[in-house]
Amino acid sequence: MSHHPTDSDLGTFLRSRRQRVTPSQVGMPSGPGARRTSGLRREEVASLAGVSVDYYARLERGRERNPSPAVLNSLAVAFGLTPDECRYLYALAGQSPTVPDSTFPQPLPRVLRDDQVVRRSVLKVLEAIRPSPGFVTNLAMDVVAANPAGLALFPGLERHPPVGRTPEHSLGNISRYMFTDPMSKSLAQNWEQEMGAHVAHLRSQLAVYPDARDLRRLIDGLLADSPDFARLWKEYEVRRRTGGSRSFSHPVVGELHLEYESLPLADTPGHRLILYPTVLGTPEHAAVTLLDSQGPAGSTSSAVFSSQERSGPSAPRL
């Protein structure tokens, strides 16, 4: 016998998600005294989702049957649902996502949790494409994993502190590097175009993750520290960066023209895998081979670097 979602199914699902999220995970105080619920209170969910407490209570009790897509997405963000859970939530409400599955918003908790680590399989990809450069960024553009050429491609990257991690646990922040390091303007042959595309990508990410505190902290910091970023931000360009080509004037290998792909990692919202593939026998491959052999200043070149490995033994080098 097939099962059709009911109003009580929607309420039960919302209640189960509410009970698994703690106030600290969404940046809220737990308040005085003992809490009778293991997760968020209804009034806390209502505040996070921007709806009234009465309205949310009616949703959980099955008395409200037609939540809007905006309300559903707000609840998904509040609960930090995965894309699969988002689609299930829409199905329980008798609706379909209003955007293609490939661009369905991936809600992100307001506070990035420590369990958002780079999977070992992704680290193996970074190792497998060597000597070609590759790295992984989180939503706030902290570089959280990289191979040697990926770090050596941006000299001095490690000097720029992260937004979402402590400095000793970071490989650097690519946005801060681009807009506040003097090396950046000489490194990029078409700096203005590159920076415009980068700013447009950050704005597109903010549209998908409007409540991500680390992303907002990054943008606020760049608005204060970089007149170039502030100027480009006012242009309101919105465009996801999924791939293309970049031209470098690199201090080690000279002129370098590389194509790249920027791929979202579905199981870790906000993380992107950026790869610069090269072909054996080409000048580009010879150049990145040199970068791979050197790696970043003061490092070895025999491993993929992952920022979580510096904070504990859970992710050893490959």
Rank of each mutant, 00 (worst) to 15 (best):
V118K: 05
R87M: 07
I274H: 11
R61F: 01
N147A: 09
S47I: 08
H4G: 10
R317C: 07
R58P: 15
C86H: 05
A46F: 13
D101L: 12
Y90L: 07
N147G: 12
V21H: 00
P32D: 00
G244L: 11
Y276C: 01
P162G: 14
F79T: 01
M178D: 03
D115S: 07
H201I: 06
A230I: 02
S306N: 14
P32F: 00
D292K: 02
V122Q: 02
G134E: 10
H3P: 13
N73R: 11
H3V: 13
F104G: 12
S52N: 05
A230S: 15
P313M: 08
L151Y: 09
T22F: 01
G50A: 07
T98C: 07
P162D: 00
L151H: 13
L223M: 08
R317I: 13
S247K: 05
V304E: 03
L263W: 10
L223A: 13
Q189S: 15
A128I: 04
D114S: 14
V253D: 03
P29V: 00
R159I: 04
A188V: 14
P100Y: 01
D54Y: 10
N66W: 15
S24P: 02
M183T: 15
V26F: 06
H285V: 01
E44K: 06
W233S: 10
R213E: 08
E255M: 02
V238P: 02
I129T: 06
T278G: 01
T12N: 11
D114M: 01
L218G: 10
P133E: 12
E60V: 01
G312A: 05
V252L: 12
S247R: 12
Y236F: 09
L187K: 07
H201V: 06
A70Q: 13
P313I: 05
R216M: 08
E261K: 14
V118S: 06
L112F: 02
E168I: 07
E127L: 12
R217Y: 05
Y209R: 10
R61T: 15
R217S: 15
H250T: 14
R217H: 15
P167N: 10
R15S: 11
H285D: 14
E158H: 07
D214R: 07
V252F: 11
L290E: 13
P316Y: 02
P67N: 04
R272F: 11
V208S: 13
P131M: 03
R17S: 00
A297I: 11
L265W: 05
P105S: 13
T282Y: 06
S74C: 05
A78F: 06
N173P: 15
P67M: 00
H169R: 11
L171I: 11
V144K: 02
L318V: 07
P277W: 09
P133S: 06
Q205R: 14
T137P: 00
E127S: 13
A266V: 09
A128Q: 08
